[in-house]
């Protein structure tokens, strides 16, 4: 497709993205708003007479925690992939006895309210001494992603033609080789999907972080919000500023990842 013909699509794409991100814009707008103008009626559409007070305190207090968030996000992605991909391969292609029951349990596992999960983890971690640790938070965050990842991987891997598997088997590949060098590379799109969501969930998690990690020195950035939620008062411009500061590096990361992945896909890993 030539660049010229794609122009209308780009314009439409920009408009759609604009509509979709309007609430995000509004959040940014609030983050720059002075206390006195926050509930002005009608509201300011742009942060005229804005303040950077919120950002000043966020940049002063919260920046070190970005690293923790990144570590937790990537750790969650890794753990999720390690646990989920083999399981999904088995469920989709190897017909394990009891596999459906397992799928059911996975479905049910996602219905346990996050707070109950957090309460359970609290009890377990207290005894293991894992409270306020990055590793503990990675494990807890991965519980949001693992059931999802297994089910998504299964749906994608079920789409791999059986002939491809048979061909590998005829070539003498064992189940592990077939999984590693056939199923996994073909499931690149599923891997991308799962990794993205595992990362997003871990990055924006609040429930686990506040239950399991609120006393530690290595807190994720989302908990920085608490710094601005007093027992009687909330500083909304700083809260919104924290969210903006927290989402910028992650957005950049996702854009880079998507470009890289898009390039990889078109270069032909999936063809044939």
């Amino acid at each position: 497709m030539t660049a010229q013909r794609s122009w209308p699509r780009t314009v439409l794409g920009l408009v759609l993205t604009g509509v979709m991100l309007f609430p995000v814009y509004w959040m940014i707008n609030v983050s720059f708003t002075r206390q006195g103008d926050m509930r002005k009626s009608p509201p300011n559409w742009f942060p005229v007479d804005g303040t950077v007070e919120g950002y000043r305190s966020v940049l002063r207090d919260q920046l070190p925690y970005l690293g923790t968030s990144l570590l937790v996000g990537l750790g969650t992605v890794a753990l999720t992939l390690i646990v989920a991909a083999p399981a999904a391969y088995s469920l989709a292609k190897l017909n394990p006895r009891g596999g459906r029951a397992l799928s059911f349990v996975l479905l049910m596992a996602q219905m346990i309210p996050g707070i109950i999960m957090a309460m359970g983890f609290y009890a377990i971690y207290l005894n293991l001494g894992l409270l306020n640790s990055v590793a503990g938070l990675i494990v807890a965050d991965s519980t949001i992603a693992v059931p999802f990842a297994v089910l998504i991987f299964t749906a994608f891997m079920a789409g791999i033609p059986d002939e491809v598997m048979h061909a590998a088997k005829v070539d003498g590949a064992g189940p592990w080789r077939t999984f590693w060098s056939v199923a996994l590379p073909v499931s690149r799109n599923a891997t991308v999907t799962v990794s993205l969501f595992a990362f997003l969930w871990a990055w924006s998690d609040f429930v686990y972080a506040s239950t399991l990690d609120s006393g530690g020195a290595q807190r994720p950035i989302t908990l920085g919000i608490y710094h601005y939620i007093g027992n009687n008062n909330q500083e909304w411009n700083a809260i919104m500023a924290t969210a903006v500061v927290a989402s910028i590096p992650a957005t950049v990361l996702i854009i880079i990842a998507q470009r890289y992945v898009a390039a990889g896909v078109t270069s032909g890993a999936v063809k044939d």
Binding site: G13, M20, L21, L200, S247, I254, I255, A262
Partner: peptide, 20 residues
């Protein structure tokens, strides 16, 4: 169908999920 800026715009659609 990919078009100019499509990868970036698609990534931007994910921003709501980055927010607590």
């Amino acid at each position: 169908k990919s078009f100019r800026l499509s990868a970036i715009l698609r990534a931007l659609f994910l921003v709501p999920w980055l927010l607590p």
